[in-house]
Computed example of a mutant assay.
Amino acid sequence: MKRRKFIRNTSAAGLGISLIGTYACKEAKKEKEMAADETKSAAISKPFFELSLAQWSIHKMIREEGVDPYTFAEKAKNWGFTGLEYVSQLYNPELSDADYSEEAMAAFIDKSNAEAKKHGMKNVLIMIDGQGNLAVSDEKERNETVEKHKKWVDAAAAMGCHAIRVNLNGSSNPEEWKANSVDGLTKLATYAKEKNINVLVENHGGLSSNGELHAAVMKMVNMDNCGTLPDFGNFCIARKSGSWDCETQYDKYKGVKELMPYAKAVSAKSHDFDAAGNETEIDYVKMLQMVKDTGYTGFIGVEYEGSKLDEEAGIKATKELLLKAAKKVV
């Protein structure tokens, strides 16, 4: 081969290699930019909270259809949740018939932990019902109620939960109720602090659904492990005699705003939906904006209590509404 032809061929080959290298670099850069865009898009679409399921959402399945409460973790996993909010009364009569004995509680803990682990779920909290009145005026009864709740603090700790939810039932006199609530909560939270468990109060009827009084109690207790669990829909202070219809209703938006500064969990209540998938009585965007404005980034629990949709459909509708509303908050 002549020298001139050799140089020309060599130059062409070098140019080809150079062009291939340039193309490869551009493609790599393009792929990197696309991956970054996908990551950014995922971050934008991801809500500011985590999703948990309140077991009360399937109470009809358990009580009326005979569904095993220990399938809770499996169902929640299949419906796209990552956290579990247990309800103590849904394990009766198994627990109540045994008088919440050490053996019965241990079995509940072991079974629940095994199911949560099997399905890769996180135990978030336990909602406690039927264990007495923490805000009752009789000090002896109030102290007995505190003692009854201690076994649930122990259970929450053994299950890796961060909290138990309690009710502040008791006196109907606002000043008495506040004093009783502070006493009962302080005693229980003092015990729970040793176990690294939070004691949370939900607006759950009576004076606990008065956001201003409820927040005043939190301020008076003033303990790091005592807080609130604001529920979007439980703001009925008094019901009509002999009826479930509400007679005295507290402003739900005012209430959530008052309770959020002390919140360590949040409950997204739902009953019914319109054609666009919005809750008919609760503005979820407005609620979530208040939640986000406080800097809350923990679990929000879906709690469907409606009757028009079956429980599975209602749970899914509430979850979708939460995710849709989350994209509209700023």
Rank of each mutant, 00 (worst) to 15 (best):
K257E: 10
V285D: 07
A238P: 11
E247T: 05
E202L: 07
I197F: 02
L213K: 06
Y250W: 15
G301I: 00
K264H: 15
V266P: 08
K252N: 15
T294D: 08
K264Y: 15
L259Y: 03
V201N: 11
Q289A: 11
V285H: 06
D251F: 09
D272N: 15
C246V: 00
K254D: 08
V199Y: 11
H214G: 03
G301A: 13
N222T: 01
A215I: 07
G227E: 13
A276N: 11
D274W: 02
D293T: 03
V217P: 15
V266K: 05
Y296H: 11
Y262K: 12
K240R: 11
C246N: 00
D224V: 07
Y296P: 12
M287H: 12
A276T: 10
A216M: 09
N210L: 03
D293I: 02
Q289S: 13
K257R: 12
G295R: 10
A216C: 07
L200F: 15
V266R: 05
K252L: 14
N225D: 02
S267R: 13
H214K: 04
E279W: 05
G211E: 01
L288T: 08
V221H: 03
V302N: 02
Q249Y: 14
K257N: 11
D245L: 10
T294Q: 08
I237N: 05
R239G: 05
K286S: 14
D245N: 09
K257W: 13
F273C: 09
E247R: 12
N234M: 04
E279Q: 12
A265D: 10
F273A: 06
T280Y: 05
F299I: 07
H271L: 13
L259K: 04
C226F: 10
G242V: 00
N225W: 01
G211R: 01
A275E: 14
G242F: 01
F232I: 00
L213A: 05
S208R: 00
N225V: 02
Y250C: 10
T297Q: 14
D224I: 07
V221Q: 04
C236S: 05
C236P: 01
M287W: 11
G298K: 03
S270W: 04
Y250S: 14
L288N: 09
T280D: 06
C226A: 14
K254Y: 06
H271E: 13
V221S: 03
Y253S: 02
T297P: 14
E279H: 13
S267N: 12
M223N: 03
A216F: 06
N278L: 01
T294L: 07
K264P: 10
G255K: 00
T280I: 10
V285Y: 04
I300P: 15
K252C: 15
K257G: 11
K269Y: 03
K286W: 09
K240D: 04
M223L: 13
D224H: 11
M287F: 15
G301M: 10
M290F: 13
F232C: 00
Y284L: 10
D293V: 00
K219H: 08
Y253A: 03
N234P: 06
V221R: 02
